[in-house]
């Protein structure tokens, strides 16, 4: 049994599709132009989990994103997949927010939404890779969290959730509301139906997108955006991704294997 009016908020982010990076054959330099933007993969798994609960329990699914107006694209995609309501948080003063400031803005938006039973987030965004927004949002809303969700069951107001770590598996029971973070191991996101596409990408779909700015939220703008962020980007540069084949030299195979292990370790691959 489950309450009939379960309401799930899914936080999604629009990111540049880092899988689409192409390398110029002549120069070996990464081509950045025209990099398409997509729904962050982990967030899509979060949305799929919410939609599964919608199919199973008739839950209401609200997709929430923060970003430029262009981020409406991921909300339309969410609608096409089956989200009932979609909200874009858009304000110039929010630009440049770090993860904590982002969590604060999302928390303010969620408070404006009002009642909810569950928040689903992707574990990590493939652009920034901070993996912090989910837990920080849970902290600011003062609700419990389960990260790296692997299994989920709901009875009445109680969630039974299994999470993994590198070596262990924990199953917790807790009451909603709860925030859960997921990655691509949890499920296989659905392809939207063509009917869903036709409706979401229609004028009517466009009109369904709620856009909330700073004035719509109860938030201190001194605490968000670049100004309000506690961390600052100091500098950034492109990594060297031109593939230069290096043949590892060494006295014998053992020596070569050792140098290889060192290299892999330096590259943070093992």
């Amino acid at each position: 049994m489950i309450r009939s009016n379960m309401r799930i908020i899914v936080c999604i982010k629009q990111v540049p599709d880092t899988n689409e990076f192409k390398i110029d054959l002549e120069t070996g330099i990464m081509i950045r132009e025209g990099l398409p933007c997509v729904m962050n993969p982990d967030d899509k798994n979060a949305l799929e989990e919410a939609l599964r609960l919608k199919d199973e329990y008739n839950a209401e699914v609200i997709a929430l994103t923060m970003g430029p107006l262009q981020a409406k694209d991921v909300l339309k995609e969410a609608m096409a997949m089956g989200a009932d309501e979609v909200i874009l948080i858009n304000d110039l003063s929010f630009a440049g927010s770090d993860s904590l400031a982002t969590a604060a803005i999302l928390a303010a938006a969620i408070e404006r939404i009002g009642h909810y039973d569950m928040i689903l987030c992707g574990m990590q965004a493939m652009d920034g890779n901070t993996g912090q927004t989910g837990p920080q949002l849970a902290e600011l809303l003062n609700i419990p969290q389960i990260t790296y969700l692997k299994e989920l069951n709901i009875i009445d107001n109680t969630v039974t959730a299994t999470k993994w770590t590198e070596s262990e598996k924990y199953t917790f029971k807790l009451n909603m509301p709860v925030l859960l973070t997921v990655n691509n191991e949890l499920n296989d996101p659905r392809i939207p139906t063509m009917m869903g596409v036709m409706k979401a990408y229609d004028e009517a779909g466009e009109k369904k997108i709620k856009v909330w700015g700073a004035n719509d939220l109860d938030i201190d703008i001194e605490q968000v955006g670049i100004k309000g962020s506690v961390t600052n980007i100091y500098e950034s540069c492109l990594t060297h991704i031109n593939r230069v084949s290096t043949i590892i030299e060494g006295e014998d195979e053992k020596e070569m294997a050792k140098s290889l292990a060192m290299k892999l370790s330096e590259l943070n691959l093992i």
């Binding site: 939207p192 139906t193 063509m194 009917m195 869903g196 596409v197 036709m198």
Partner: peptide
């Protein structure tokens, strides 16, 4: 069919996708 490709050019009244 489930994804609505087969019915793309037909009306949703008959199971199409209104495209």
């Amino acid at each position: 069919g489930e994804l609505g490709f087969v019915g793309l050019p037909y009306s949703s009244e008959y199971g199409g996708s209104d495209a």
